[in-house]
Design a protein around this nucleic acid. Structure first.
Lengths: 133, 133, 133, 133
DNA sequence: GTGGTCTAGACCACT
DNA sequence: GTGGTCTAGACCACG
C-alpha cells in the first residue's frame, strides 16, 4: 500500500492521509484486521509530522474504520467497516450536493454524471483486483 | 432567492455563499443576466461582512458564473455558464473520488450511489433546491 | 472613427475612451484640427455618462492632445501633438517596466519583445493608411 | 531583496508588491525555490497591512510565480516560471497597445521605442532593477 | 450607490 | 509560527 501525499495541495495532509487509507480499504488493498504502520513509522515514511498522522488515525477511529490499541498498534477494524448510517447519509448528501449543483450548472446531464462516477467506482475496485503492493 | 448561511459550519461562509448561488443557477432560480444583490446588501441580508461576500463574488467571477461591473453591480453571466472543461473535470474527479471511496468502503453499490445522486439532481432541477431531507 | 467601449472591462471607461482617441490620432484617423463630437454627442453615441466623456476629454486636454473651446467644441490640437518630454518619458518607463519584467520572467527575449511591439506599431500605423471610417 | 512601496502612488500597493517581486525574479535576485518573507513579516517590513500582502501573494500564486504552503510559507515556484502562454500574450498586447499608441502619437519611432525598452531590459537583467534613472 | 482598496485586529487550522 | 478566514469600519474611483 503506497500512500502519496501532495504537500502542495490545499487539502490538509491529515485529510489526504485519511482519504488514502479509505481508498485503500475500498479497493481491497487494506483488509479488516490488517495492521497499519505505527504513527511514528507512518510519519517518517511520509515525511510528515507525527501529530498529523495521529490526527488522521484518530478521525478514522472515530468513524469506525480502524482500531487503535495502545500496545498492539493500529489495525483496520476487524469487525468490518461501518455501514451506510443515516448520519453518514446526511454528510454524504451535504458533501455531494454542491458538486452536483455545479455539474448541473455547467450543463452536465445526470447520465454523464453517473458515467463519470462509475468510472471512478470501477477504477477504485479494479485497483483492488490487481496487486501492486 | 433565499440564501441561508450556517455561521457555525466548518465550511467557510464565502464558500457556502458560492455554493448557494451555484445551486440557484442550477435550479433556475437565478437566470443569466439576472442581477445579484450588491456586495453590501447581500452582506447585510446574510448578516456577514462585506468582504466575505466580496470574496465569494470574486471567486464566482473567476469561474465564469457571474460578471462584476464596477458601477452597475453583479449579474449572472448573461453569456451563459461555463461548460464542462477539462480543467473542471479534473477538479470534479478530485473532489468526488474520496466521496466515492468512502461510499464503496461502507458497502454502497454503484446503483445505490447513482440513485442518491439522481435524487439530488432531480431535487435541484425540479424543486429548486429547497429540500433538505 | 469608430470607438468601441468594453463595459465589462476592468479598465475605466474614461480611460478606454482616452486610449481610443490617442489610437485614432496615432493611426492618422484623427488629424490635428479635426473636430471631435461634443461631450453630449459622444456620450450618447457610446451610451455612457456625460461625466465620463468629460473626464476623458479633460485629461486629453491636460496632456495636450486636444483643445476644448466653450462654443466651438472639441478639436484635435491643431498645433500638433505633444512631443517626447522628459516628464512623459518618466511615465513611459514607469508604465512599461513591469510589463518588461514579467516578459523577462516568462522567458521572453528582447528580440521577441521587440517583434511583438513592432507588430503592434505597424498595426496602428497601417490602420491609418487604410480607411474604414 | 529590498522592496520599496510608494504609499502615495495611485497604483494599488498589492500591485506594486506584485511587480516588485516579478522584477526580483526577472533580475535573478529571487530564484526558484527561494523563500519569501511570511505574509506578516513582509507586511511589517513594508509597513502595510497583512491582507494587502496576502492579496499580492495570492495573485502571484494564481499566475504561477510563487507557491504558497499553508504552514511552510511562500516560495518562488521551484518548478520554474510560467511561460509565454497565449493567454499571457493577449494580456500583454492589451497592456502595451495604449503605451505604443501614445508613443507613436508623440512622434517616437519604432527604433527609439525598441531602444528605450532594451535599456530597461538590460537594466533588469544586469543590475537587478536597482536603477531608477 | 457601486465595487476596489486598505487598515487594524481577531480567531482558527495545520504542522 | 504559518496562512486562512472573518469582522468592522474607512476612503476612493467610477458613473
Amino acid at each position: 500500500m503506497i500512500i502519496k501525499i501532495d504537500l502542495q495541495s490545499e487539502i490538509p495532509i491529515y485529510n489526504q492521509l485519511q482519504n488514502s487509507i479509505i481508498e485503500g480499504i475500498a479497493s481491497g488493498h487494506l483488509k479488516p484486521g490488517e495492521p497499519l504502520p505505527s504513527v511514528r513509522n507512518m510519519a517518517s515514511d511520509l515525511g510528515v509530522n507525527m501529530h498529523t498522522v495521529n490526527k488522521a488515525y484518530n478521525l478514522l477511529k472515530q468513524e469506525g474504520f480502524i482500531q487503535i490499541h495502545r500496545q498492539k498498534g493500529v489495525v483496520i477494524n476487524p469487525d468490518g467497516m461501518p455501514g451506510v448510517t443515516s448520519e453518514y447519509l446526511k454528510k454524504f448528501k451535504q458533501d455531494i450536493r454542491p458538486i452536483i449543483a455545479e455539474a448541473l450548472c455547467r450543463g452536465m446531464t445526470g447520465k454523464e454524471f453517473d458515467k463519470f462516477c462509475n468510472v471512478i467506482f470501477d477504477d477504485l475496485k479494479v485497483k483492488g483486483g490487481n496487486s501492486d503492493g
